[in-house]
Each structure stands twice: as C-alpha cells, then as structure tokens.
Simulated scan of single mutants.
Amino acid sequence: MPTHAQIIDRALHRIVAGYVFPERAVEIDRAIRDRLAAGEYDALTGAAFCEAVTAHLQEVCPDRHLRLLWQDEPQSAEPEDDDTGRAAFLARLRAENQGVRLVEHLHGNIGHLDIRRIADAGEGGRAIAAAMELVAHTRALVLDLRECRGGAPTGAAMWCSYFFADDQVHLNDIYERSTDSTRQYWTVSPLPAPRYPDRPLYVLTSAATFSGGEDVAYTLQALGRAVVVGETTRGGAHPTRRHPVTEHITVTVPTARTVNAVTGTNWEGVGVRPDLPVPAAEALEEAHEDAIRRLG
C-alpha cells in the first residue's frame, strides 16, 4: 500500500503537469507538501485522508474540480489513455439514458425536461433530439438541471443550440493548457429536431448543479435566452481529467478553462446565480406558475 507521501507526490505531479493555471499549481504543490511534512495527514486514512487533502487543495486554489477522490471499489491504477477515459465516460452516459431522466407535459401545455447529465453531442445527439421532439409543440419549456452533475461541452453546446434560431450564436470558448489552444463553441446546424427559439424558457438549478449543467444554465442566462430559477449552483467551470493514483484514489485535475462569449468570464467559484431565487424544491412550481402568468 503506498504511503501518504507517495500518494501526495503522485497527485501533485499530475497537478503541476496539467493544471490550467501553472503558477497556481506551484503554490498548491508547496502548500500540500508543507502540510505533509508537518504530519497533518498522519492519522488519516481512506476517504477522510482524501477529504482533508481536497479541502487543503481548494483552500490554496478554490477550484471545485480540483479533488482527491476515494473509491471503495478498487480500480486499475494504470494511467488511462484518452481513448479509455472517453470510452468509460460514454458508457456511463449510455447507462444513464444520455442524461435524459424525464420528459413530461405540465398543465397549460408547459414542457418539462429533467436532465441529469449533459451527453456527448455525438453519441447523445439522438437522445437530446428525441427529448426536444417530444416538447416541440409546448407553449413554454422548463429545463430542469437541479440534479445535473456535469457532462460534455459538445453536448452543452447542442442543448443550447435548440434555443436559438440558427448557427450564428457564439456560446463560449475553452482554452486547453496542454495544447495552448482555444476551441470556439457556436450553436449547431443542422439539428435533428425542431428548434425552440422563441418561446419562454426556464432553467432550474440547485446547489448541487455542477460543471456541464452549469455550462448550459450560465450560457442561456448570459445570452438572455432563459430565466434561471432556483439556487446558486456549485461553481465548477473547468473541464477536467481524472488520473488514478492508487487502486482506491483518483486525482481530478482541471486542464482547461471556459470563457463565455458574452461575459468574458465563467462561473468558477461563484456559481450560476438565479434570476428567481427560491429553494430548489420549489423551483419547478415557481417556473410553471411564472410561465402560466406570462402566457395568460
């Protein structure tokens, strides 16, 4: 079993090599090694050890994607290549119906989509289209992201694309440290289901909404396309890679950053703030009632 020093050394190696802000990675490395030398982790094991290191990582650099994670079930400790990591991600999305949990029509012909993951646009595009096809003739739509924990930037762009008239809307950019390059994300055309560009749109959020779910909420809000209802989200805006450290421990390293085309920044550390703040449990009822009022 690796020692605390070995685990931290492996994790910090990944952070220093890959973290999107290299200068902050140096600060993180120094701070965690100082705590290790002071014996702060000596009495900790398993999940408690990972939680303590994560708290200290985020104390130096408040990045919600920067974490040391414990898994009870053993995993391969061999480094994953890009293809293996992507295959596992896509398999998880397939098992979760590409993130689409529920499609329903509420009273007054208001659509409600409960989305738990943001699918990859390639494999998940048909599921996104199927959901949008089923709400195509509603008078308003509620996009429920209260339990959405993340997903793919390509899927976030596809979801957003349905709510604009064409492919001429610049959504955001993502800067990748490893290649020192920036990829632009625009609305997509053509789409396999009808667009929904001109009817009321509500996005529901909670304190648990994270990462890819926040991407969709923030983008639609920044572009003035949706009313966000619920709670301020968790605040994780940096695309991330996972690296096994031991059979039970993984380090997650943000390797890129999102820059919104309207605001010039993102939701990292601050979350997406709702236009209509209400407890998450009341957000669907609030959005539904507001839509009925608006439509008359």
Score class of each variant (00 low, 15 high):
Arg64Asp: 08
Asp215His: 14
Ala152Thr: 06
Met1Lys: 04
Pro277Ser: 06
His243Met: 15
Val188Leu: 11
Ala11Thr: 00
His105Asn: 08
Pro197Ile: 03
Ala193Arg: 04
His56Asn: 15
Asp275Leu: 07
Glu285His: 14
Arg149Tyr: 10
Thr205Asn: 05
His107Leu: 15
Cys50Ala: 15
Pro239Met: 10
Ile28Gln: 02
Thr138Pro: 07
Met158Glu: 15
Gly213Thr: 06
Ala121Asp: 13
Ala77His: 01
Ser178Ala: 15
Ala237Tyr: 01
Pro244Thr: 11
Leu113Phe: 00
Val53Ala: 12
Ile128Asn: 07
Leu93Cys: 14
Asn266His: 06
Glu214Cys: 14
Gly269Ser: 03
Gln6Gly: 10
Ala87Ile: 04
Val53Ser: 11
Leu102Gly: 02
Asp173His: 08
Asp82Tyr: 02
Asp120Ala: 09
Glu282Ser: 12
Val103Gln: 07
Val270Ile: 13
Gly125Cys: 07
Arg117Phe: 12
Ser181Tyr: 07
Leu102Glu: 15
His105Arg: 12
Ile174Tyr: 03
Ala261His: 08
Tyr19Lys: 11
Ser189Asn: 10
Val26Lys: 12
Trp186Ala: 13
His65Pro: 01
Pro254Val: 10
Gly85Cys: 12
Met1Val: 06
Thr205Glu: 07
Pro274Phe: 07
Gly271Cys: 02
Pro277Asp: 03
Asp63Val: 08
Thr3Val: 04
Glu133Arg: 14
Val228Glu: 06
Phe89Ile: 13
Val142Leu: 15
Leu295Gly: 10
Glu231Cys: 06
Gly230Trp: 01
Pro274Arg: 05
Leu143Gly: 12
Trp267Gly: 09
Pro277Glu: 03
Pro279Ser: 04
Arg149Cys: 09
Arg126Trp: 00
Val103Gly: 09
Ala43Glu: 15
Tyr185Ile: 11
Thr246His: 07
Arg24Gln: 15
Asn97Cys: 14
Asn172Met: 10
Pro274Trp: 06
Glu78Ser: 03
Asn172Val: 03
Pro153Ser: 09
Arg24Met: 15
Arg116Gln: 10
Thr263Met: 01
Asp290Gly: 04
Pro244Ile: 11
Asp173Lys: 05
Arg35Cys: 09
Val229Pro: 11
Asn109Arg: 13
Pro197Leu: 03
Ala136Val: 00
His65Glu: 14
Ala121Cys: 02
Thr265Tyr: 06
Val259Asp: 15
Thr258Cys: 13
Asp42Tyr: 00
Thr258His: 11
Arg242Pro: 08
Val103Ala: 09
Thr252Gln: 12
Pro2Thr: 02
Leu90Cys: 04
Tyr196Gly: 05
Asp83Arg: 07
Ser181Trp: 06
Trp186Thr: 12
Val278Pro: 02
Leu171Ser: 05
His65Ser: 07
Gly108Ala: 04
Thr84Met: 07
Ile118Arg: 05
Pro22Gly: 08
Glu23Cys: 13
Glu80Gln: 11
Asp9Met: 08
Leu36Ile: 05
Ser76Cys: 01
His4Pro: 13
Gly212Glu: 08
Pro2Gly: 02
Arg24Cys: 14
Thr154Phe: 04
Asn109Ser: 14
Arg234Val: 10
Leu204Ser: 04
Ala77Ile: 01
Arg195Glu: 06
Glu147Tyr: 00
Leu295Asp: 09
